[in-house]
Amino acid sequence: MQSKSFSTRTLDANALKSFAHPLRLRIYELLDEHGPSTATKLAALVGQNTGATSYHLRELAKHGMIEVAPEMGRGKEKYWRIVLGGFTYGDTPPDAEAASALEFLLDDLVRQRGAELARWRDASAGAPEEWVRASGFGRRSLRLTAEETGEMRDAVFELLERYRALSDRREREAAAGSPDAATGHVVVHFDVLPLGAAGGAGEDGEET
């Protein structure tokens, strides 16, 4: 069953190859977490010189991952921000190099999710009570058909898309000078893993 795309764009082979770079992934991660920034500020965070950081920023921009925030900065100072709408890695890459890049990106996605979960586990003890109440950890082990699994995946992504659109609207309002101080950077992890399918043996339908 082919996945629906709930993002505004799908990365093509060239974008996959360009994005599969440790420093570019880290720069994108920092812009996503902290908001618009300059090459100079990012260079200090990633331990690189400004020239190198500027080059990687331009590469990300060339493939539509980030863009200049024209309303920010003075003179030659240039702020960069992620492009709203999200992206997807798409289906099977057309060549071996792109397939290798996709494997690298998926491995980094696993790393990032583990790091974010561990970070919240450490930070939650000192977080404001309303944010702790709003957070949650969840896992379900289900017995479903492939069709039901795809339907569930799409239903969850449709809900996430609704809130992504709300978030994007607020990002645009903040860029126009009307930030909402009550909002925070919220990360949602959602995976559908048919673990039994590869080996031909399913798991017990236990809910945890």
Rank of each mutant, 00 (worst) to 15 (best):
T208K: 06
H56E: 15
L105H: 02
F87C: 00
D154P: 03
L23D: 02
M152C: 01
H34K: 15
L42R: 00
P194S: 15
R169E: 14
G51V: 13
D204Q: 12
G177R: 09
L30V: 08
S100W: 02
T88W: 01
S5M: 06
T92N: 01
A98N: 07
T53P: 06
P70Q: 06
K17N: 09
V156T: 01
S141W: 00
A52W: 13
E161Y: 12
A146M: 00
W131L: 11
G150A: 00
E206P: 03
A123C: 04
Y163C: 06
F19Q: 01
R81E: 02
L42N: 03
L109T: 07
E29A: 14
G86M: 10
A39T: 01
G184R: 15
E203G: 09
L45C: 05
A101L: 09
M152Q: 04
L166Q: 11
R140G: 00
A182Y: 10
P128L: 10
F6N: 13
V188S: 10
T92V: 06
V83K: 03
V110Y: 02
A98Q: 07
T10H: 05
S18G: 05
V156E: 01
R111N: 12
R143I: 02
G85C: 05
V110E: 05
L30W: 05
A101G: 08
P93T: 02
A15W: 00
S37R: 10
S18A: 09
A176Y: 00
E148Q: 05
L23N: 02
A155V: 04
T208D: 05
D32K: 15
R24Q: 03
G64D: 00
V156Q: 04
S7L: 10
L117H: 12
A174D: 02
P179D: 01
F87D: 00
E206K: 12
G64A: 03
